[in-house]
Write a protein that binds this DNA or RNA. Sequence first.
DNA 1: TGGCAGAATTGGTAGGACCACTAGCGAGCC
DNA 2: GGCTCGCTAGTGGTCCTACCAATTCTGCCA
Lengths: 243, 243
Amino acid sequence: MKRPLREEPESSGARTTVTERAMQRIKDMISDGLLVPGQRLPTEREFAADLGLSRSSMREAIRALTVLGVLEARHGAGVYVTSLEPRDLLDTFGVVAEISRGDTLLHLVQVRKILEPAATATAAARIDDEILALLRAEMTAMEQGGSAEEIVGHDLEFHRLIVEAAANPVLSAILDGLSSRTFRARVWRGYRVEGVFERTFQEHDRIYRALAERDPESARTAAAIHVTAVEDWLRTQAEMDEV
Amino acid sequence: MKRPLREEPESSGARTTVTERAMQRIKDMISDGLLVPGQRLPTEREFAADLGLSRSSMREAIRALTVLGVLEARHGAGVYVTSLEPRDLLDTFGVVAEISRGDTLLHLVQVRKILEPAATATAAARIDDEILALLRAEMTAMEQGGSAEEIVGHDLEFHRLIVEAAANPVLSAILDGLSSRTFRARVWRGYRVEGVFERTFQEHDRIYRALAERDPESARTAAAIHVTAVEDWLRTQAEMDEV
DNA sequence: TGGCAGAATTGGTAGGACCACTAGCGAGCC
DNA sequence: GGCTCGCTAGTGGTCCTACCAATTCTGCCA
């Protein structure tokens, strides 16, 4: 057992730090509806006094909830509850992709291989002409080249637009994290050498056509092919590293 | 535009707090390989001095990375880098389910509806008899009843075992978060009234049989049916709330 | 009426003091 | 000689105070 971290059912004075307890208190206040999105919290000094702890510890709790996307501190203005929408709460997801390496990268892509085809299929059923036009624009911008940075940007935006068309914010947030900038850039760096640009353009084109025809199953397949290509590439990279 | 939070490309002295910069420094040290899993960091006091900030600010940075599952502080012993495996990094995922309500709950289940069938199908191809026996045990334990707490526990464990058999830690961590205890408990509270226990048992049984026969497609279908049942229930709940 | 300067408010940073827990060392006992 | 127990130094946890920096409010003045 690697994780002896389970706590007993809160027997009031659990063996946790005051900061952790404060975080829990605040989270509870939110799920109980005492704190609603956009609401302003009391002053750090006040709030600390209310919950019976020092400002330092309260600040640690607030900082922690801030990085989790639950709270937002504005210098000089106060601390506020965020919108609590998936966009905010799942920002931290990108940290995984930022830090991960080795097998975990493969596992990340495999999850993407599950989600992205499903998202693309859903998008095919609900996408409108306006979004299709935007996709077309990203494709041409991408083919015209530019710095690696720019190309990656267009690639990310292309996929982001599609996923967004699936109209599920949680899904969008997760896939955003899985395809974080640094991760995608890492992949492209290698791609360039092997000149697989062309194939990627073709794959994007195939996805686009399926979406334009509102054909969910074709869209699903096209997306699956695309992500699988990335997976294959990652696999070969991993094998090379082992040598 | 709701989020004017984008920062300029770090022009050295970006307009961020020292704590945020410290967090970035530490994350960089990790992705650059200067800090590896399990390694011990310098003393808070030392480390703060090294990076040129106060211990208070350094503590906030460490606390933040701790809740993200990147670092682990042991009272009296020191601060360590975690294993950096998905289990650790994606713990925070549960916070979303803990706090979310309304439409977001629906979106969470919809993502689960995508992932769980895929995971179950994969599991069917690789599951061994030992795991099957454990699943059987969870099923009987669940049918024998007990407190809502216990039943939920067996339910969670049943699904956790299956997902784990898919051998993708990232997938496991995400689904764990999507099915966090409080969320699942909330669903069961409502279930009990309508007496849909029986159906759930049958659904579990069907999943089990598909796994035992190593039939991925049946497993996928059975899992999809199961999650869809939860989704439907959530939908009716939402409609009732609107009335 | 409008705008601007200053005061009050509030988060950000710093540094020090002390508490609580851990780990390692050494004395003492078996 | 080997083991245990207790002590001690080291380290994270908490609290406090002071001051800085950004924002917001207030009220005077043109």
